[in-house]
Design a protein around this nucleic acid. Structure first.
Lengths: 222, 222
DNA sequence: CATCACACGGGAAATTTGCCCGATGTCCAT
DNA sequence: ATGGACATCGGGCAAATTTCCCGTGTGATG
């Protein structure tokens, strides 16, 4: 076995988490944390300065997102090996991270050994996804979200939009010149087609589908 | 100076974060981590078993919430000193945590020394809020939208959170060990207090209040 | 012209909502 | 320790809504 020593750059905005990485990674003989960073800009700078073998990156950081940092680093060095370590179970995050140029995606809630394993995988230029994400992504490939929306008829879609504006059946009936009964029937059909069983779920789905204009909803930035 | 040694119970569902605490706290001579837990039930059990001086608790955990754990522990020991260490900047979370019986609330993004400082404060039965939260809480007094949110009792707030996760009455009842009827009653009271007429409106309000984590909801960055 | 998808809405059962109530528990101040 | 103010929990029940199935009319299409 050759002597390998993987140089790592840590990127996370939470000091406590960086501390956790260090403690965990220090126990591995072949890994050395050579630098860290708390935001996207610092990550980019330190990548250029320290030329790490693997970058471990959190993608939910204030200001510039981790995804942006991934793109920047990959633009500077197309060979950069980046492993995303995120709290988001949402497979779409993983997909975006991979698209942006990450080689791995491991959720924070998975077993820490998966992180170690991921580092070695990524070091060897291999894709590494934690099992929960891999499975979710596979399921998602079986494609449903967008397709289901397309199942709605034009009228149903129209009614959905009005429902999402928190209008009641009577108001919608007045707007469309139909009976409130028809509205409520459509409401039911919409939920069935979209495979949700409550209005809360419906609203969440609508947000994901960008049917609901978030900017109309949110006054303040964070 | 007398010899003090504060025994700590760590509660967080992420292994990496527990690792971070350990590493950080170990450096403090007067602090000893005597146990940890990854969910509310385990937290309660380990509190009884190990009788720690201070509990450090994350409140966003799967299943039973941290708020529930706080209540349970305080019910068992009214003197329990609990410091919440949370990723939520939303001051309403802090307020509810304090109401549930926590003595401190520090955000994960604050400087780690604040956590240490908070531990000593709480150990001495003093309230401890990280500056960002204290300020936000003060500012909030000037607002009015948030005021309605604060009208909710701790229990109602907790039920609201579960409702927003699109759980049905039976699921929430199972999680909180109450009857589905109580859940539906609370659901109604919540809507009345927040002055909304439908679940869609409720969800929209929750988004504006940032009770709903948009990052968990949205697929694509913008 | 036959069919097929769609819009519309009635009917009836099942469920939820809206609002009431009382029992119990806890905290706090007198 | 006693009273009062809340808070939690859930039963009851009428009114309202949802859920599900149904039929009708209409317009497009093969």
């Amino acid at each position: 076995m050759t002597e390998i020593d993987i140089k790592i750059l840590l990127v996370d905005d939470h000091a406590i988490v960086r501390e956790g990485y260090r403690s965990l990674l220090q126990k591995q003989p072949n890994l050395t944390v050579i630098a860290d960073a708390r935001d996207a800009a610092e990550a980019y700078q330190n990548y250029k300065t320290f030329q790490p073998d693997v970058v471990i990156m959190d993608i939910s950081m204030p200001g510039q997102s981790g995804l942006e940092a991934i793109s920047r680093i990959r633009q500077y060095d197309a060979q950069a090996r980046i492993l995303v370590f995120s709290m988001h179970q949402n497979p779409s995050f993983a997909l975006q991270a991979i698209r942006a140029g990450a080689l791995g995606y491991v959720t924070k809630s998975s077993d820490p050994t998966l992180l170690i394993h991921g580092i070695f995988q990524v070091y060897e230029n291999k894709l590494s996804l934690s099992p929960d994400i891999a499975q979710a992504l596979a399921l998602e490939k079986l494609g449903q979200d967008k397709a289901r929306l397309d199942d709605l008829t034009v009228r149903e879609f129209e009614i959905l939009r009005l429902l999402l504006e928190a209008k009641n059946n009577q108001q919608i009936a007045d707007i469309l010149n139909i009976s409130p009964k028809t509205v409520s029937n459509s409401h039911y059909i919409i939920k069935r087609k979209l495979e949700v069983n409550s209005d809360i779920e419906l609203t969440r789905l609508a947000i994901r589908m960008k049917l609901l204009n978030l900017r109309d909803l949110i006054d303040e930035a964070e």
